[in-house]
Design a protein around this nucleic acid. Structure first.
Lengths: 227, 227
DNA sequence: TCAAAAGTGTTCGGCATACACCCATGG
DNA sequence: CCATGGGTGTATGCCGAACACTTTTGA
């Protein structure tokens, strides 16, 4: 018991809410807990913060340890600090969100404190450990606000994608339907979604494949703030 | 040294970024620190979290102890977790923002660990303790995003206010000028800013006094999400 | 009567919405 | 040739931007 302090200190953990998209619906990556409390219960990947890492570094480390995912961009959601949210001791958690190409992680390994890692549709989730359901609710709210302002959708998609896929993400996140023609018009008008010339082979008529031009997007953003 | 843990724990503090508006510009409430580190330096009101309170409760308690302000609405910004942000030990802080009618707190007492509490214009700030300049930058960004979507401005104003005052807040926060006629039109079209019938006596022609109708605002919001 | 500040209406362009027909592919 | 899914254009309404003169008050 080597760590003593003059005043009590809470423990600090991080959690990652990783969003993915499988072509039709919005998914979330969960791990099955291998240890108590909430053993065998599904939870967000995460764990205790080390003293020599920022919360972001800790979140990425735990995500890697528990799911194999690495080198992705995470963004802080907020801290969750209810006094009794962990039965062991006072634990506050700092939650992060991430958006990944789910196809790159179709198989996610479990590992470390996680028995198993698996994608779940946001609409068919198992019961979650701790206050993770509350955290998810906040994460989804933030996602809905963010997708209107930032090109999050393209982090969930492959390098090339069809307009229909983009529309599916918007519809899955915002839970409403859009008109195909208007959606297409709005997206192409943005100026940073450009046709690659290739086509996607699918069931019916093949769709044009587009790519997201990050540079042009940044240009557009800087124009926007200049006004 | 009574508090021992099996693994090291960071200390956890809270900080409050309190925004006010004095009729012309956006202001922030700072305290002059009475203790080391950064003694005599200006900082956001805040302090160590107790084990029996949420971060929000801790932030409100510290704010009350150091400035006398109480019973206000605070909202979590995010956690700040750089490893060396406090010279004493590993400290993470959870920052909150608040919007108050500055007139209600024209005189703010210092107290506790704060020698003095004082309003500063966001444009003429002293050097700040710890990483508080970075925190402020994030808080201002968030404020700018938020004011477009939520009626924050009215938390900064008196119960009744003139259109010019509302416009000044928007201009101070977003750092751009608006056309008086268009601004007036847009605001009245919102449906929840209603003339009281009174007028404000001022230098030139008196302005109509308006009030913010929270109920009507909530109605409008629910209509919005219904679409 | 002058200075300071506030009230107000019209025009225009762009963006969101509604809406239907034709085209490319695979089976 | 048929089923499936994708591509595309036009009309309309609303909201935001530009823009100037008149009115009320205090000094």
């Amino acid at each position: 018991m080597p760590y003593t302090y003059k005043y009590p200190h809470p423990a600090v953990t991080t959690d990652c809410i990783v969003f993915g998209f499988d072509g039709t619906g919005l998914n979330i990556l969960l791990i099955k807990r291998g240890i108590e409390p909430y053993k065998d219960c599904w939870a967000f990947p995460g764990g205790f913060l080390n003293m020599d890492e920022t919360a972001e570094e800790g979140a990425l480390r735990e995500l890697h340890e528990e799911t194999g995912i690495e080198e992705i961009y995470v963004e802080q959601l907020q801290a969750f600090t209810k006094v009794d949210r962990d039965p062991r001791e006072r634990v506050i958690t700092i939650a992060f969100t991430a958006f990944v190409r789910q196809e790159d992680y179709g198989y996610v390994k479990g590992g470390d404190d996680a028995k198993e890692a698996k994608w779940f549709s946001v609409n068919e989730l198992p019961p979650l450990a701790f206050d993770h359901e509350e955290i998810l609710k906040i994460a989804l709210e933030r996602l809905r606000n963010k997708i209107r302002l930032e090109p999050i959708a393209f982090h969930l998609l492959n390098k090339t994608f069809t307009m229909t896929q983009v529309q599916s993400i918007y519809e899955a996140v915002l839970e409403q339907k859009y008109d195909r023609r208007n959606f297409h018009k709005k997206m192409t008008a943005l100026g940073y979604i450009i046709p690659t010339g290739d086509k996607q082979t699918a069931n019916g008529r093949p769709g044009i494949l587009y790519s997201f031009d990050e540079e042009k997007y940044n240009e557009e953003v800087s124009k926007r703030s200049a006004i």
